[in-house]
Nucleic acid binder design. Sequence first.
DNA 1: TGAGGCACTGTATTTTTGAACAGTTTTCGC
DNA 2: GCGAAAACTGTTCAAAAATACAGTGCCTCA
Lengths: 201, 201
Amino acid sequence: MDSNLTGRQREILDFIRATVETEGRPPTRAEVCTAFGFRSPNAAESHLRALAAKGAILLEEGRARGIRLPDGIGLPIVGRVAAGSPILAVEHVESRQQIDPALFSPKADYLLRVHGMSMRDAGILDGDLLAVHRAPEARVGQIVVARVEDEVTVKTFTRKGNLVSLLPANPDFEPIVIDTRREPLVIEGIAVGLIRKGMPV
Amino acid sequence: MDSNLTGRQREILDFIRATVETEGRPPTRAEVCTAFGFRSPNAAESHLRALAAKGAILLEEGRARGIRLPDGIGLPIVGRVAAGSPILAVEHVESRQQIDPALFSPKADYLLRVHGMSMRDAGILDGDLLAVHRAPEARVGQIVVARVEDEVTVKTFTRKGNLVSLLPANPDFEPIVIDTRREPLVIEGIAVGLIRKGMPV
DNA sequence: TGAGGCACTGTATTTTTGAACAGTTTTCGC
DNA sequence: GCGAAAACTGTTCAAAAATACAGTGCCTCA
């Protein structure tokens, strides 16, 4: 939806987003012009048309500031991940949650629904939404989302040379040890926070 | 700031908030008129003036939809609560967090910063932000924020007749038992969710 | 009881915006 | 080096929006 934009169109879209964020309303054509130094309102107009044609924005005709940003997208909630497909593939997105990614730091890229109790002692329970920042690498001690043999798992990351250990936080579970010379280990991201909706009764 | 508004002014302000929420931009005078059935744009105009005079909104003159809502306040984060003062007293509010209260259900009224590990086995750790819905009563099994002898504590609520037990979720801690005929027990709210910002390293 | 604030009607005028029409320059794939 | 899309300039005009001015009815409070 957002991907096939030209560089300039992306800049314009970012400006619209920023304006909505900081001023609480979309910009006018004229405001786009001053922001980018255009001398003709039609420069803005045609960019908006292009963005609307690509579905990046919606234009309501005849209304002042009639630019709509297609819905508050929010963070995707990723459920069970099928083997061999990327974690953010559409079929894994259960729903979306309207949350500011910058609530966490570094920013969260998605929320992973946690299955099982293997991280219980780290206060990560079954059903929790783990806020994950996409990152290809991790430091020792960080809680990571990793993919091992096409299984997505949440564990604490440690490493000794080529030997990576993924540690559970629950004595009922066994660590996963991987020799990275033989088996590939894909870090999908690092945990940056957690959201629990509702409390177990 | 928000309190000394007339009934009608409050309605108008709520409408403005709703419009920003659903449409992503503030309403025009004309839109206020149609929403309330006014026949004169000046009805809207004077209400906006009144709201601006009371600081409930900011008006930018000469701009279409030039209504600004003074910043999204968000949920208060309550830190340590001093003895004898209400939990939402200003001096307890560490800061505020821009989160939709309706993320949780029932809605969260504030976020309580958790101190200590007495609820560890319920996945509630030191430093977590507990989303709390204000409620004067609780059902057995719910995790509550309670005030006992001027101490604010988070525990699981149980009751047998006049005997209320507040159970920790950690064997290192002792339950608190209260005879409600003798000691008063104030339920400040029930836990409806949890947010953890950052992960222990 | 009458002065003042609130909540409106009604009309008019100016700005701000959106949007159409007609062109020019640049970039880039082919 | 041709042609098309992208990225603009410049001008114009009508609709949308802000805003001023002149009133009316109702309620409250002194």
